[in-house]
Amino acid sequence: MSEIFSAFAIAFELIVSLDRELYTIIGRTMYVSISAVAMAALLGLLLGAVLAVYRFPGRRAVIVVLNALMGLPPVVVGLVLYLFLSREGPLGFLGLLFSPTAMVLAQFFLILPIIAALSHQFLRDLYLEYQEQLCSLGARPNQVVFTLLWDGRVNLVTVVMAGFGRAIAEVGAVLIVGGNIAELTRVMTTTIALETSKGNLALALALGIVLVFGAIGLNAAAYTLGGVSTYRRI
């Protein structure tokens, strides 16, 4: 138990002392996860909206697969991506293994199904509500897709933040394709795993606390920017 108390003390000390290594790691963590979330949101939200609006053969199969992939273990994503990016793999020539880019890709593939499946679920309900009205006004399906994305933005922020939460919290995938190389691919979660394996439980927990506060801050920012506050008053 004493670890928990000293963890808070260490966390506080790390934050206020502007520990250079800590802030570099936080910066790298944010860079990797935000890049992954930006890419996954771009594609995932569009995919979710298209699945909600268009009817095409194989649509149900895509939805089932996306829902199933939401529970994909990060280690599996990391392993598959490792086999692709390894020098003996089909994309080995790119030399991306053990780079931040590889970690971005790992998190991208990890959260794409989450963002696509959750946004599809939500946008399908919104489409049911809007369908007759939009059709009556003469909106074409491609216009409907963007209407849903815009009008659903408040809930879609939550969807994207769910993806972000998973990206920033996972360790299995980035450990395999990033290699936890100091000053290059070491992020918050891999540092926590490393410090735990060194027996520095309090320091590991302190980093966890910092991670949680970072996530809270980012979520708050996202919700404010997403205009949730305006709509919650309604």
Binding site: R28, L91, L96, L105
Partner: peptide, 22 residues
């Protein structure tokens, strides 16, 4: 093409990240 664009974007991001960090 989508996959290609994704990888390209990722590669560009990666270059940005590297030059920023080391």
């Amino acid at each position: 093409r989508t996959v290609g664009i994704l990888f390209l974007t990722a590669a560009l991001l990666g270059i940005g990240g590297k030059s920023a960090s080391a």
